[in-house]
Structures are given as structure tokens and as C-alpha cells.
Write a protein that binds this DNA or RNA. Structure first.
Length: 124
DNA sequence: GCATTGACGAAGG
DNA sequence: CCCTTCGCCAATG
């Protein structure tokens, strides 16, 4: 595997690429009824200085199968900033409500109460 | 190869 | 207290 694998379509089956794989794994570990933030995941991965990269990774989540519960990942305000990236802008809220998470005005109700920090829950 | 953007976050005015 | 700016890192144009 150290060789250069002459793969023409490198991104065809690119399921692994450090950051994305890690982010996907953490997101999938988010318990139902809980939510986390990009910064929390970033911090857990050690890239807390770049919470944006987590968001970028989520963008690749469209290639992930099955689709990860990205609805459980919101910004540090608890706001559903990524709802516009879903199949439908309302899908995120619906999914969250199905998880038992109340959403009000595009924000997670009692966000800090149901906040799930991987660095803590997983035992940093 | 440089400039812009992006699902964030914290700090400064 | 609200809004603006900077920082971070990677991908895309």
C-alpha cells in the first residue's frame, strides 16, 4: 500500500481520506436525541482550530452511505446552519424531531442540555 | 499558482 | 449588546 496505486479514478471509491472518515465515524456515534457542534468534533479530532474543515467534511457526507445523521451536527449556537444542504431545508428539522430533539426557529431547544461532546463522552 | 469560498468559532469594536 | 473582522485549512475556480 505504500506504492502509488495507479488509480485513474482516485475519488471514485475514495471512502477514506483522513479527515472525512474520522468525522463520519464520530457523527455516526452521536446518540439519538443528542446533538453536537462542529467545533466539538473538530476539537476531538485535534483540529479544533479549524471547525470549518468539519463542515467541509460533512459536505462529502453526500457520498457517505448511508447518509450520516448530519442533522445532529449544528454550529455552536445550536442553530441548524446546515439545513440548506439537506435534500430539503425542512428535512433536518424533521429528522431532529424524530430523534426527539425539539427545534424552534431553526435552533435546537435546550441545546446545551442535549449537547453531546465526543471529547467527553468518548473520553478524549 | 493565486484568489475565493465554505454546514465555524472566538475576539474585537 | 450587535455587528464586523480575523483565523484556520482545504477544495474549487
Amino acid at each position: 500500500m505504500k506504492k502509488k496505486a495507479p488509480n485513474k479514478s482516485k475519488e471514485e471509491t475514495a471512502k477514506e481520506y483522513s479527515f472525512f472518515a474520522d468525522v463520519f465515524d464520530v457523527v455516526r456515534l452521536i446518540p439519538k436525541g443528542r446533538v453536537t457542534s462542529y467545533g466539538a468534533i473538530a476539537a476531538y479530532l485535534g483540529t479544533k482550530l479549524s471547525a470549518r474543515m468539519v463542515g467541509w467534511a460533512m459536505n462529502a457526507s453526500h457520498n457517505a452511505k448511508p447518509k450520516l445523521p448530519a442533522q445532529r451536527v449544528v454550529n455552536r449556537n445550536g442553530m441548524l446552519t446546515g439545513k440548506h444542504h439537506f435534500e430539503t431545508p425542512t428535512k433536518m428539522e424533521e429528522l431532529l424531531k424524530k430523534d426527539g430533539v425539539a427545534v424552534k426557529n431553526d435552533k435546537v431547544v435546550d441545546f446545551k442540555n442535549i449537547f453531546w461532546d465526543p471529547a467527553i463522552e468518548l473520553g478524549y
